[in-house]
Amino acid sequence: MKLKLWTFYLVLIIIPWIYGQTLPEKPAAWCNDYAGVLTPQQRDSLNAILGAFEQRTSNQIFIAIFRRLPEGTYLEDFAVRLFEKWRPGLPDKNNGILIVIFTEDRKARIEVGYGLEDVITDAQARRVLYDEMIPYFKKGDYYHGLLAGLKVLMPAAEGKYQIPLKRRSRSRSKSSDPLVAIFTVLIIFLFLYGVSRRGRHAGMTLGPGPVIVWHGGHSRRRRRRDDDDDDDFWGGGGSFGGSGFSGGFGGLSGGGGASGSW
């Protein structure tokens, strides 16, 4: 009896834990290969394509490749929850797309944000999946399958939203990097100095809000160029950038899109 109760508690604790574990944190890149089926060059090239596309049109497309679906969930449920967590797209436009692939389950889904549902209908998403992507997936060529799919999805999304992301801290990060780095360090030191000297008052006058915002854009720019050594220097930048991917809150989907298997 006692044992039963114990296992009951254990299950109670473990199930939500497992469930929580199944969704990865919001990433710092567009293409996320948790299954290890893309080469680093392929991943970088997809990131470059999607990064430039977002920059130009504001439409944000995320890719997530896994091996298997976690227990106790199914493809559509997983995709919409991951969408809820990663929030691709702008919050007021909901112009995000999430492509999820499960290599060992041989399943994939294109999850379309609310804002793009009319330009990428379920039937169109299904055609993209079955006609463009799955023929490649069958051969295990995920890279070319994704490229073929993006070739259709990107113009469709662009047909509705073309908002260049100029004001999103982009102009700032154009300035020379070492100078910016020194400037940041200086501000942080000043801030810390102020706090230690004036106690709590400094915290109110020197809220480092703009620094954080700018930082988000910066760390992401670096990721895309793939200079890992510099990323270490930024350390905390990654955690700022995590939510600052597209300025915090993003778009939502309502279960639009299509699923496919092969």
Binding site: T121, D122, G255, G256, A258
Partner: peptide, 12 residues
Amino acid sequence: AQLEGTENRIAV
């Protein structure tokens, strides 16, 4: 495809 998508939207 539309029906599947709609059923999925309903669940969501």
